[in-house]
Design a protein around this nucleic acid. Structure first.
Lengths: 354, 354
DNA sequence: GATCCAGTCTGAATCGATACAGAGAGGTGC
DNA sequence: GCACCTCTCTGTATCGATTCAGACTGGATC
C-alpha cells in the first residue's frame, strides 16, 4: 500500500488538512512544521498528493485534450498536424498544462466514450470533419473548446482559429489560371464519405463532405469561373487518405487520356507531393509538364519546389491553445483568422503549347 | 451545475449504484431499466460518469505519460522524436489508452512536481539524460515505466527498449575509417553540461555527460582505435542543442585550420544535416570534400544522401508503450534490444589525396 | 486588563463516482 | 414444500485528497 496523506498526518501527529496545506498552501502553516511534514513524507515514501484525488476535489485537471478525428498515429505522420502540435505544446508549456492525446477508436459509440472519458479541462479540436458529435459531447460535458476547422453552423460565441480557406484557395488557383491553364484537376482527400479513389462527378461543390475541403475547392472554383471555366469543366479527383501514396493512386492514369489536365490543384501539400512523385516515376519516363500546387507549405514543400499556400501552422496551434487556456474577455477576440500567402515555386509554370 | 450520477438516479427513482452499472456494467441490470436510465441521462444532459471521479475510485486513469527531458515543443521538431511518438500512439490506440504529454518547466523542483502531478498509469521515458530524479519520482509513485535511454545503473528488472549504441556507432565509424579517414571530428549535442559550442578537450570518453551520447562516442572511438587513432587524436566538437543551426554553429571555422578533419561523425542525423548545410553554404564557395555521417536515419537523411545508422524509431515507441501497457510475464522479455543497420549513402567517400 | 488581530492548526463536509455484500423476487428440481 | 439458484437492484463504505469556517495562542494596542 502506498502511503496516503493521512499516513503522513498520523506520522507527524497533525491533521490531514495541515499536511495538505504543506503541499498546496505553504503560507498556511509555519515553515518549521512544513519541513517536519515534508521530511516525514520523504521518510515514508509519500510521493505527494494523488493527482486524481486532487483533481476531483479541486474541480480541474491541469491538462487539455487535443482531438484528431483521424487516427492518432496518422496525425504524427502529417507534417502539418505535427507543426500544429508544436504550437499547442509551446502554449501548454507556457501555462504549465499537459496535453492529452486521445485516440478515437473506430465506431461512433466507442469514439463518443473516448471523448466522454478524457480527463481534461478543455479541448483543442484539430479536425472534426462533419463529426459534430464530438463537439456535442464536449458541450454536454460543459468543457470549453477551440475548433480549427470552419464549420457552417458555428455559433458566434464559439472560439475558433483558422484561415479564410476559400480566399486562400482562390489565390493559388488564380495564379494557375493566370498561367493559362484551363484543363485542371482538383485533388482532395475524402471528397465524399465513401467514394473510390480517382475522378469523381459532383453536381456542385456543396456536395463536398469536409468543410475545410469544401472551402478550398470552392475557392479553386471561384478563380476558374472568373476565367470562364465552370464547375462542370473542372475535374474533381478523390484520394483515399491524405498521403503521398493515396495521391499517387488517385491520379493514376489521369495523364494518359487524350486531353489530360495541365494542372493539378491539391487540397494539401502532402497530396501535391504525391502527385509530383507520381509524375516523376512514370513508367515510360516521360514527365508531363503538369503544374502542381499544394496547400499549407509544410517543410518538405520548399525542398520539392512546390507552389503552395502558406499558412502559419504553429501559430494556429499556439493560438488555439491560448484561446483555450486564457480566454479573451471579448467574445469577438475568440474568433481568430490567420493570414495566408501564395508561395510560388517551380512546380507551376505556363501551359505548354501542344 | 452539471448533473451528477445521483441526479440521474433520483430522476429515474433508482439507486446510484444502478445508474453506475448502467454505464459500466450493463450485465448487472435489465436492458429495459438501462434504457430508461440512459434516456433520463440524455434528458438531463448528463454526460456520463465524471472521468476524474471514476479514476479515483477505480484506481487507474487510462492514460500513459510520455516524458521528454528537453522542451516538449522541441520534441515535435525532432524528426526522431516524432517517429517515436508515432509508435507510442499506435500502441496506445490499440489499447484504447490516451497519451499525456507533460512539459517539464525549467528548474528541478518545478519539474519534479510536474511528474508528481501527472495523472497517468505509467510512463514512457523518452530521454532522461542523467536526470535520475524523474525516475525516482516515478518509482516513488509506484508507477511502472519503460525507459529508452541506456543508463549505467539500470536495474535488471527495469523495462527498457533501445539499441546497442556503442556497437552501432562503431559500425559507421569503421566504415569511415575504412575509407581512409584519420583526421575526424566527433560532433555531439551537450557533451558536457555547460560547455560552449565548438571543439572541446576531454580526458576520455567517460567524461561525456549523456549516456546515449557516451555510448555513441565510445563506439566511434572503438573503431578508430583499431586503425591506430587514439582518443587524443580525435576531435570532439560540442553543439548547443540538437538542431541544424546548432551543428552549423559548432563546426564554424572547423575546416579552416591547416589540418582540418576529413570526416565528421555526428551523434544524430539532425546534427549531420546541419554540417552538410554549413559545408554547402561556405562563403568562399568551396565545398570541402568532407565525409559526414549521422545517426537515426530520419526521413530527411535519405533525401540528403546522408550515410547514417538506421534504427527502428517507430518500433522503439511502439514497443516501449507495449512493454508498459502489456508487461511480459518474463522479466527478461522486458529488456528489448532493437537491430540497427549501417546505411551508406553519398555523404561519405574516400579521403581526398591532397 | 479587555480587545483585537495575525498566525497556526483542526474537523467536518465534500468532490463524483465504484465495489461489494446482501436483500427480495421469482423460478427449478426433487 | 423446501432448499437452492439466478436475476435485479440497493445501501454503505471507500477512493485520496481540498475547502472553509472556526478554535486556539500569543502578542500588540489602547
Amino acid at each position: 500500500m502506498k502511503p496516503t496523506l493521512q499516513a503522513v498526518a498520523d506520522a507527524v501527529g497533525v491533521s490531514r488538512s495541515t499536511v495538505s496545506n504543506a503541499y498546496s498552501r505553504p503560507d498556511q502553516l509555519s515553515a518549521a512544521l512544513r519541513e517536519r511534514i515534508l521530511d516525514a513524507a520523504r521518510q515514508l515514501g509519500y510521493p505527494g498528493p494523488n493527482p486524481t484525488a486532487r483533481s476531483l476535489r479541486r474541480g480541474f485537471v491541469g491538462s487539455i485534450g487535443v482531438l484528431f478525428t483521424s487516427q492518432l498515429s496518422y496525425a504524427f505522420t502529417d507534417p502539418f498536424a505535427v507543426r500544429f502540435l508544436t504550437g499547442v505544446s509551446a502554449a501548454a508549456e507556457r501555462h504549465g498544462t499537459s496535453m492529452l492525446l486521445v485516440p478515437l477508436p473506430p465506431g461512433q459509440t466507442d469514439a463518443r466514450q473516448a471523448v466522454e472519458n478524457a480527463a481534461v479541462d478543455g479541448f483543442c479540436v484539430y479536425c472534426v470533419a462533419d463529426e459534430e458529435w464530438a463537439l456535442d459531447v464536449i458541450r454536454a460535458r460543459g468543457l470549453p473548446y477551440v475548433s480549427t476547422a470552419a464549420r457552417d453552423d458555428a455559433g458566434a460565441d464559439e472560439r475558433y482559429v483558422g484561415i479564410d480557406e476559400r480566399a486562400a484557395a482562390r489565390g493559388v488557383a488564380a495564379h494557375v489560371a493566370g498561367l493559362g491553364h484551363r484543363r485542371v484537376a482538383l485533388l482532395a482527400d475524402s471528397v465524399l464519405p465513401d467514394a473510390p479513389a480517382g475522378p469523381l462527378t459532383l453536381a456542385g461543390v456543396h456536395e463536398v463532405w469536409h468543410p475545410t475541403t469544401r472551402g478550398r475547392l470552392t475557392g479553386f472554383a471561384d478563380a476558374f469561373r472568373e476565367v470562364g471555366v465552370g464547375w462542370a469543366d473542372l475535374m474533381v479527383v478523390n484520394a483515399l487518405g491524405n498521403s503521398r501514396q493515396a495521391a499517387g493512386a488517385a491520379v493514376a492514369g489521369l495523364f494518359d487520356g487524350h486531353a489530360p489536365p495541365t494542372a493539378v490543384l491539391a487540397g494539401s501539400d502532402v497530396l501535391a507531393l504525391g502527385v509530383l512523385d507520381a509524375l516523376a516515376q512514370r513508367a515510360d519516363g516521360t514527365r508531363p509538364p503538369v503544374s502542381v500546387t499544394g496547400f499549407d507549405d509544410v517543410p518538405e514543400a520548399a525542398a520539392a519546389g512546390l507552389t503552395t499556400v502558406r499558412q502559419p501552422a504553429e501559430d494556429k496551434g499556439r493560438i488555439a491553445a491560448e484561446l483555450l487556456l486564457d480566454p479573451p474577455a471579448d467574445a469577438a477576440a475568440g474568433h481568430v483568422l490567420l493570414p495566408t500567402a501564395l508561395v510560388v515555386r517551380a512546380s507551376t509554370g505556363p501551359v505548354p503549347r501542344s
